[in-house]
Design a protein around this nucleic acid. Structure first.
Length: 526
DNA sequence: TAGGTCAGCGCC
DNA sequence: AAAGGGCGCTGACCTA
């Protein structure tokens, strides 16, 4: 059973309509309470057809969680892209307009970033639009490949996970974070000034140059180094490191700490951590490859230095699990080059032992360059050796690159489709698109694996009915916050979900997708 | 003052 | 040593 649901504006009516599996209405539109929605979930466990990610946020706020959904706007994005029109509007209004033969208008800003008042006056018959667009999507999905149906379901489930992770929040100890900042930067400056440690390093830089220099200004730094006989192309740290000058040491230390202070310092802490939780906004499918994006607080770029602040509540544990070398394993499965990923052990080390004289660094560089399109220096030579030894794997990514250079579309394993080519006026532009499509097929499929993993894991956790919560997801890594006595069961669930995800995508492939869960108190612990 | 782009760097 | 894919965020710098 499916039920289309419009949770409505805040304090407004909740409307729903029962649907057949193909999306045709199976009853009249009804106005209900959230309590009635919860009762329907309990009795029928239907697939709820919702307009967008934010609809579920409203339901969670009202205390309703559900098992399954179909996210109309996310699915529309997949279908529009599959048509070679990625980037076209795919909001509910635009989808409805296309269905009615009208020219779609640009999508409105996401509800999360819109003031409440603006949306309270929203569309008059949102529910009718949900029903109509969903029915059209079901027709398209039914006529297409099974992969897209799985992708639509997994992408939709992602919206549920994202909403629940936002609601749960990542456990974040402000006191630990503050202590860590104090240790590295000195005491918190009182009126927005520069921390003591940064002032001291700045002083050292100025002394080394014999004059005041603003280390935050690349142009000024390049001039300062020029005056002392070092011509720089940029002030990137790897370039600075090659220079022999007394300013370099304190400057590099300054840059590192200044970044910590600016991006994840006390200001970040005050803005993003409340009541012991960091609640980022996850944007499902926010990246063209299908990876998630995030907005607010930089959730997907939490530096290793502050991860100690992520700590389980007393009596609870963190279960942190990341997929080992996910992308090369995905390439092995995609291309049928199973010898590239013969077992669950360290793939780079195994490859190094077979091909690169035990040099793991070389093996890793070779594989990453193969997937990213790297050609320069040593990388080119290493990739050439891979091409001889693993022709099917290399032919797969080379084919994707050729398609991209020629302006064609490429698709992930389940069918996520890359954006159409813009003007490929120059050979350089064509090569750039080739590097993009070369990576798209691998990164996009890896994102699908992770999405299916999340969906499977979430389903397992709901069945177990414990209080364990998914609290973080970062491309190929998941974190759960669990009661200590449930940790072992959750570890088993994570392992099972990883195995299931591999089978759902690739059937009985011999390629392993090992996920190595660790039970810890702090995110910084190995 | 408000908005854009760029350089640089954090993450995968 | 340092170049190949995808992001978000910050301060500097420039323009309106």
């Amino acid at each position: 059973m499916r039920i289309a649901l419009d949770p409505g504006p805040r304090d407004g009516p909740v409307r729903l309509r029962r649907l057949a599996e193909d999306g045709t209405p199976a009853g009249p539109a009804e106005t209900v309470t959230f309590a009635e929605v919860a009762a329907l979930e309990l009795r029928h466990a239907p697939r709820w057809v919702l307009a967008r990610q934010h609809s579920y946020r409203r339901m969670l706020t009202a205390g309703v969680s559900v098992g399954r959904n179909h996210d109309v706007e996310l699915v529309e994005g997949l279908l529009v892209a599959a048509d070679g029109r990625a980037g076209d509007p795919h909001g509910l209004a635009a989808a409805g307009a296309r269905l009615a033969g009208r020219e779609p208008e640009p999508d409105p800003p996401s509800p999360a970033e819109t003031t409440v008042g603006l949306f309270d006056t929203g569309p008059t018959d949102e529910l009718a639009a949900i029903v109509a667009v969903h029915a059209a999507q079901q027709r398209t999905l039914a006529a297409g490949a099974a992969g897209m149906r799985l992708l639509a379901a997994a992408e939709s489930a992602g919206a549920l996970v994202a909403g629940e992770m936002h609601a749960a929040g990542l456990p974040w100890r402000a006191d630990v974070h503050d202590q860590l900042l104090t240790d590295l930067l000195g005491p918190r400056p009182t009126h927005g000034g520069r921390p003591a440690k940064l002032n001291a390093l700045l002083e050292e830089v100025n002394t080394a140059f014999g004059r005041p220099v603003n280390p935050d200004s690349p142009a000024e730094l390049i001039r300062a180094f020029g005056r002392v006989g070092h011509e720089l192309g940029s002030t990137r740290s790897w370039e600075l490191r090659r220079i022999d000058h007394p300013a370099v040491g304190p400057l590099l230390a300054y840059k590192e700490l200044a970044r910590l202070h600016a991006a994840h310092g006390w200001s970040w802490l005050r803005t993003w951590v409340h009541d012991g939780r960091f609640r980022p906004e996850y944007v499902v499918g926010g990246v063209v490859t299908g990876r998630w994006a995030s907005s607010g607080g930089g959730a997907l770029q939490i530096p290793k230095t502050v991860r100690a602040a992520v700590r389980a509540d007393p009596g609870w544990k963190l279960v942190v699990a990341d997929a080992a070398q996910l992308e090369p394993r995905v390439l092995a499965a995609l291309s049928g080059e199973h010898g590239l990923a013969p077992g669950p052990d360290d793939l780079y080390a195994a490859l190094a032992a077979r091909e690169f004289g035990g040099d793991r660094g070389k093996a890793k560089l070779a594989l990453l360059s193969a997937m990213y399109g790297g050609t320069s220096g040593e990388a080119g030579e290493l990739v050439a050796r891979l091409r001889l030894r693993y022709p099917a794997a290399m032919a797969f990514v080379d084919g994707a690159a050729r398609d991209g250079e020629a302006g064609r579309l490429v698709r992930s394993h389940l069918g996520r489709t890359c954006p159409p080519a813009g003007a490929l006026a120059t050979p350089a532009a064509a090569r750039a698109r080739g590097r993009f499509t070369r990576n798209f097929v691998v990164q996009g499929t890896a994102a699908e694996w992770a999405l299916v993993l999340l969906a499977e894991l979430r389903a397992a956790l709901r069945t177990a009915a414990g209080p364990a919560q998914l609290v973080f997801f970062q491309h190929d890594e998941v974190m759960l916050h669990v009661p200590a006595d449930a940790a072992d069961a959750v570890v088993a669930a994570v392992r099972a979900a990883a195995a299931t995800a591999g089978r759902r995508l690739f059937g009985d492939t011999p390629v392993h997708f090992p996920l190595t869960p660790r039970v810890v108190d702090g995110y910084d612990e190995r």
